Computed example of a mutant assay.
Amino acid sequence: MKMNLRKLLLAAILLALTVVVGQTFIIGIPWTHGNINLSDAVILLAGLLLGPKLGFLVGGGGGFLLDLISGYSQYMFFSLIVHGLEGLVCGWLFFKYGRSSLALICSVLVMVGGYFIADSFLYSMVTGILGVPTNLLQGLIGGLVGQIIFVKINKKVPLN
Protein backbone atom coordinates (compact mmCIF):
# COMPACT_ATOMS: atom_id res chain seq x y z
CA MET A 1 0.00 0.00 0.00
CA LYS A 2 1.37 3.35 -1.02
CA MET A 3 0.98 6.11 1.55
CA ASN A 4 0.68 9.63 0.24
CA LEU A 5 2.53 12.64 1.56
CA ARG A 6 -0.67 14.35 2.69
CA LYS A 7 -1.50 11.48 5.04
CA LEU A 8 2.01 11.38 6.46
CA LEU A 9 2.03 15.12 7.08
CA LEU A 10 -1.38 14.98 8.73
CA ALA A 11 -0.19 12.09 10.92
CA ALA A 12 2.85 14.11 12.02
CA ILE A 13 0.68 17.12 12.80
CA LEU A 14 -1.83 14.99 14.73
CA LEU A 15 0.97 13.30 16.70
CA ALA A 16 2.28 16.70 17.76
CA LEU A 17 -1.25 17.91 18.47
CA THR A 18 -1.86 14.86 20.68
CA VAL A 19 1.01 15.96 22.89
CA VAL A 20 0.03 19.64 22.90
CA VAL A 21 -3.65 18.99 23.63
CA GLY A 22 -2.80 16.37 26.24
CA GLN A 23 -0.38 18.74 27.96
CA THR A 24 -2.69 21.76 27.77
CA PHE A 25 -5.94 20.19 28.98
CA ILE A 26 -4.79 17.99 31.88
CA ILE A 27 -6.32 17.15 35.26
CA GLY A 28 -4.27 15.01 37.66
CA ILE A 29 -6.02 12.09 39.38
CA PRO A 30 -3.95 11.23 42.48
CA TRP A 31 -5.57 7.92 43.47
CA THR A 32 -4.80 6.42 40.03
CA HIS A 33 -1.35 7.99 39.55
CA GLY A 34 -2.62 9.20 36.18
CA ASN A 35 -4.57 12.06 34.68
CA ILE A 36 -7.51 13.04 32.51
CA ASN A 37 -6.61 14.84 29.30
CA LEU A 38 -7.98 15.38 25.81
CA SER A 39 -5.31 13.45 23.92
CA ASP A 40 -7.84 10.73 23.12
CA ALA A 41 -9.81 13.16 20.96
CA VAL A 42 -6.83 13.61 18.65
CA ILE A 43 -5.89 9.90 18.70
CA LEU A 44 -9.43 8.87 17.77
CA LEU A 45 -9.59 11.57 15.11
CA ALA A 46 -6.36 10.19 13.63
CA GLY A 47 -7.82 6.69 13.54
CA LEU A 48 -10.97 7.91 11.78
CA LEU A 49 -9.10 10.05 9.25
CA LEU A 50 -5.98 7.99 8.61
CA GLY A 51 -6.77 4.36 9.33
CA PRO A 52 -5.17 1.75 11.55
CA LYS A 53 -1.47 2.09 10.74
CA LEU A 54 -1.19 5.82 11.14
CA GLY A 55 -3.76 5.73 13.95
CA PHE A 56 -1.38 3.42 15.81
CA LEU A 57 1.55 5.73 15.09
CA VAL A 58 -0.27 8.86 16.27
CA GLY A 59 -1.75 7.16 19.34
CA GLY A 60 1.34 5.29 20.44
CA GLY A 61 3.82 8.04 19.66
CA GLY A 62 1.66 10.78 21.10
CA GLY A 63 0.88 8.86 24.29
CA PHE A 64 4.53 7.92 24.79
CA LEU A 65 5.79 11.48 24.33
CA LEU A 66 3.03 12.98 26.45
CA ASP A 67 3.88 10.72 29.39
CA LEU A 68 7.59 11.39 28.94
CA ILE A 69 7.27 15.18 29.16
CA SER A 70 4.44 15.38 31.70
CA GLY A 71 6.09 13.44 34.50
CA TYR A 72 4.37 10.07 34.03
CA SER A 73 7.35 8.18 32.63
CA GLN A 74 6.25 4.98 34.39
CA TYR A 75 3.37 4.90 31.86
CA MET A 76 5.39 5.65 28.69
CA PHE A 77 5.60 2.13 27.33
CA PHE A 78 2.09 1.25 28.45
CA SER A 79 0.81 4.35 26.64
CA LEU A 80 2.77 3.41 23.53
CA ILE A 81 0.85 0.16 23.41
CA VAL A 82 -2.53 1.21 24.84
CA HIS A 83 -2.98 4.46 22.88
CA GLY A 84 -1.40 2.83 19.84
CA LEU A 85 -4.02 0.08 19.98
CA GLU A 86 -6.71 2.70 20.57
CA GLY A 87 -5.79 4.45 17.30
CA LEU A 88 -5.33 1.15 15.46
CA VAL A 89 -8.68 -0.30 16.53
CA CYS A 90 -10.47 2.95 15.75
CA GLY A 91 -8.98 3.15 12.26
CA TRP A 92 -9.45 -0.55 11.52
CA LEU A 93 -13.09 -0.69 12.60
CA PHE A 94 -14.00 2.55 10.87
CA PHE A 95 -12.31 1.64 7.60
CA LYS A 96 -13.79 -1.89 7.71
CA TYR A 97 -17.37 -1.08 8.75
CA GLY A 98 -17.74 2.65 8.08
CA ARG A 99 -19.39 3.26 11.45
CA SER A 100 -17.60 5.85 13.53
CA SER A 101 -19.72 5.16 16.63
CA LEU A 102 -18.68 1.49 16.66
CA ALA A 103 -15.04 2.42 16.12
CA LEU A 104 -15.03 5.05 18.86
CA ILE A 105 -16.78 2.92 21.50
CA CYS A 106 -14.58 -0.13 20.91
CA SER A 107 -11.44 2.01 20.91
CA VAL A 108 -12.35 3.66 24.19
CA LEU A 109 -12.98 0.24 25.74
CA VAL A 110 -9.54 -0.89 24.55
CA MET A 111 -7.98 2.16 26.19
CA VAL A 112 -9.87 1.67 29.46
CA GLY A 113 -8.96 -2.03 29.58
CA GLY A 114 -5.34 -1.28 28.73
CA TYR A 115 -4.96 1.23 31.53
CA PHE A 116 -6.72 -1.10 33.96
CA ILE A 117 -3.98 -3.63 33.19
CA ALA A 118 -1.24 -0.98 33.39
CA ASP A 119 -2.45 0.42 36.74
CA SER A 120 -2.89 -3.09 38.14
CA PHE A 121 0.62 -4.06 37.05
CA LEU A 122 2.29 -0.84 38.24
CA TYR A 123 0.40 -0.44 41.51
CA SER A 124 -2.46 -2.79 42.44
CA MET A 125 -5.73 -4.15 41.13
CA VAL A 126 -7.56 -1.67 43.38
CA THR A 127 -5.73 1.18 41.62
CA GLY A 128 -6.68 -0.39 38.28
CA ILE A 129 -10.34 -0.53 39.30
CA LEU A 130 -10.28 3.04 40.60
CA GLY A 131 -8.92 4.22 37.24
CA VAL A 132 -11.74 2.70 35.19
CA PRO A 133 -14.32 5.49 35.70
CA THR A 134 -11.87 8.32 35.04
CA ASN A 135 -10.40 6.58 32.00
CA LEU A 136 -13.91 5.89 30.72
CA LEU A 137 -14.84 9.54 31.21
CA GLN A 138 -11.65 10.65 29.42
CA GLY A 139 -12.33 8.26 26.55
CA LEU A 140 -15.98 9.20 26.14
CA ILE A 141 -15.21 12.92 26.15
CA GLY A 142 -12.35 12.30 23.73
CA GLY A 143 -14.61 10.24 21.49
CA LEU A 144 -17.30 12.92 21.47
CA VAL A 145 -14.81 15.70 20.69
CA GLY A 146 -13.06 13.55 18.08
CA GLN A 147 -16.38 12.72 16.39
CA ILE A 148 -17.45 16.37 16.25
CA ILE A 149 -14.13 17.42 14.72
CA PHE A 150 -14.17 14.45 12.31
CA VAL A 151 -17.60 15.39 10.96
CA LYS A 152 -16.50 19.01 10.48
CA ILE A 153 -13.20 18.35 8.68
CA ASN A 154 -13.84 15.05 6.92
CA LYS A 155 -15.43 16.84 3.98
CA LYS A 156 -12.69 19.49 3.76
CA VAL A 157 -9.50 17.41 3.99
CA PRO A 158 -9.01 15.28 0.87
CA LEU A 159 -6.67 12.43 1.87
CA ASN A 160 -6.91 10.18 -1.19
Rank of each mutant, 00 (worst) to 15 (best):
L66G: 01
S120H: 05
V108K: 05
R99K: 15
S79M: 02
L10D: 09
L45V: 08
S124Q: 06
L48H: 06
F78P: 00
L9V: 15
T18L: 03
L136D: 03
N135K: 03
D119V: 02
D119R: 13
V112L: 11
F95C: 04
I141E: 08
V112D: 04
G59D: 11
V21I: 15
M111G: 04
I26G: 07
M76C: 06
H83S: 05
L80D: 03
G143K: 09
S39R: 10
V145Q: 10
G63R: 02
T18A: 15
L137T: 06
F121V: 09
G131S: 10
H33F: 14
L15Y: 11
K7L: 08
G34C: 06
G114V: 00
L66F: 02
L140K: 10
L122H: 05
F150V: 07
S124A: 11
R99E: 14
V42L: 07
F95D: 03
M3I: 13
L10P: 08
G91A: 05
G71C: 03
K152R: 14
I148M: 13
L9S: 15
F56S: 08
G71P: 00
Y75F: 11
N35Y: 15
G71A: 04
Y97Q: 12
L15P: 07
C90N: 13
I26D: 07
G131Y: 01
G143Y: 04
S73W: 00
M76F: 03
I153A: 14
S73Q: 06
I141F: 09
S124H: 00
S39G: 06
N160K: 12
Y97L: 13
I81G: 06
I149G: 12
K155Y: 11
K156G: 08
I129L: 13
A103K: 04
N135W: 02
L136V: 01
G113R: 06
G28H: 12
L80F: 14
F78T: 01
D67K: 02
Q147S: 15
V82G: 02
I105Y: 10
Y72C: 04
L45Y: 08
A46M: 10
P158A: 08
V110M: 08
G55S: 09
S70C: 06
L50A: 05
W31N: 14
F64I: 02
Y123T: 00
Y75C: 03
L8N: 12
S100F: 15
I43C: 01
P133Q: 03
I13L: 15
G34V: 01
G98Y: 10
V21P: 11
G59T: 05
M3V: 14
L5T: 15
I69S: 04
F94P: 07
L14R: 02
S73N: 01
V58D: 07
D119W: 04
A118C: 05
V42H: 07
G143R: 07
